[in-house]
Simulated assay, not measured.
Amino acid sequence: MSTVYIHVGTPKTGTSAIQVFFTKNRKLLKEKGVCYPNLGFDFPGINSNRNAHCLNAYIYDENHKRLRDRERETADQALEKLIGMLDRFPNFVLSDEQIWNNKDINTERLNHYKEKLAEAGADLKIIVYLRRQDLLIQSYWAQQVKENMTTSFSDYLVSKKAKYFKLDYQKRLKEMADAVGRENMIVRVYEKQQYYGGNIISDFLHLFDLEMTDEYKQSDHVVNASLEGACLEVKRLLNNNPRFTTKLNFVVPMLTTIQQEMVGEGGYSTGKYFSEKEHAEFLEKYREGNEKIARDYLGREDGILFKDEVVTEGDGEAETYSAEEMVEILGKIIVMQRDRILQKNEELAELKAPINGIKQKVKNLAHKVLDR
């Protein structure tokens, strides 16, 4: 009997890194009995590494109206493709972080997936990584600022956008457990000190009794690197200019490089976005539910789910970095852009050199012909 594992996030818990790793090592993982299948679906703006997106994709018509029947049909088609592979491997992994926050992936829908797989002789298990709620909401706000948002963290915290997140983990886990059974819920904590092997990839592999070894291909860059602190505030302010609001605009790689350099030099202010009062009130909302998760899913009688220290600094994001630091960052952007222009000019000159040589030869030849 095969087992299908659906990795549902949560967002901002290393899902991109896991998806890239499993895609890069698809062949080797198959040899070890773990299949990360490509089910053959493509969705605009969605990386193909997210191989479970077909189970919860939003599909629209030309008038941007949700086609919910089409969405369910697509999910069922994906399941049929998966079922056709079940006799080839003992374990299958599907991953998409949108599943966690997608309200349409409810108990009824998950139960439907479970029944379809059960009819084919497969079990369904759900893998979820939980990040402390204050850190997750800060990380997601930072991601949106990195793209194009201008809203401050304090305003974001009380906005409708923030309410999109299912931060009541205990409630969301119950919805899923009611479909697949609590015994089929694999709950892990997104904290380095709680990872098996000290990193997210080793921890995920260990769920399948696999160890991280040198035989695996690893990404040579940070997947979806974050901006924070002063570099993030610079980007938020620049977002008021339309030139900087495209998702992959030119300033983000420069800010990422600058941040890495400044962190290496020391003294870089990463920023904490909650005030002390906001922070305490925010965490208190989820304390009881988190304690219940620790007891019910991890067997921790002390009720401690998250072990990292809670750190609060300042009264708001504007007071966590200095004007001097932000001006320094802007200066670095100007210098980097100037250096890039100079480099491009040098490369252009090198490309033009052979052409200019040919032009001169043609010119000399023309003179000789005319002088005859």
Rank of each mutant, 00 (worst) to 15 (best):
A118S: 15
G45V: 09
H53A: 06
E175H: 10
T257L: 06
K192P: 01
A230Y: 00
Q193I: 10
Y195M: 14
L232C: 04
K277I: 13
C231Y: 01
L55K: 01
M262H: 11
N51L: 07
F204M: 08
V8L: 05
R68E: 12
E281L: 13
S139G: 13
G84M: 07
L130I: 08
D61C: 02
T15W: 00
S159P: 04
Q98H: 12
Y140D: 05
R70Q: 10
V187C: 08
E291L: 01
K125A: 11
Q143S: 04
S48T: 14
E313V: 14
L237G: 03
N239M: 10
Y195F: 15
I59R: 04
E350D: 15
I358N: 05
N49V: 13
T246L: 10
F22V: 05
S95C: 12
R188V: 06
N239F: 04
G33W: 03
D155A: 13
H7P: 06
G181S: 11
N63M: 07
I200V: 15
E317S: 08
N241P: 02
V311L: 12
V187S: 08
Y156P: 02
K103G: 02
S226D: 03
R295V: 13
K217F: 07
G229M: 06
E347H: 06
H53R: 06
L39I: 12
E119T: 12
E317H: 03
E175C: 11
M176W: 14
W141N: 03
G266V: 08
Q193S: 15
I126F: 04
A57D: 06
F89T: 03
P44M: 05
E31A: 11
S275F: 05
V4H: 00
S152A: 10
E309F: 00
I137F: 01
H53N: 15
Y58I: 12
K12A: 03
L67T: 09
H7K: 08
L210V: 11
D76W: 04
E291V: 02
I329S: 03
N49I: 12
Y273K: 01
H221V: 09
K272L: 12
N199M: 03
V34F: 00
D302Q: 05
H112A: 08
D168R: 07
A294Q: 01
L94Q: 01
R131D: 03
F244Q: 02
A120E: 06
N25M: 12
T23F: 07
V251F: 08
L167T: 09
D123T: 14
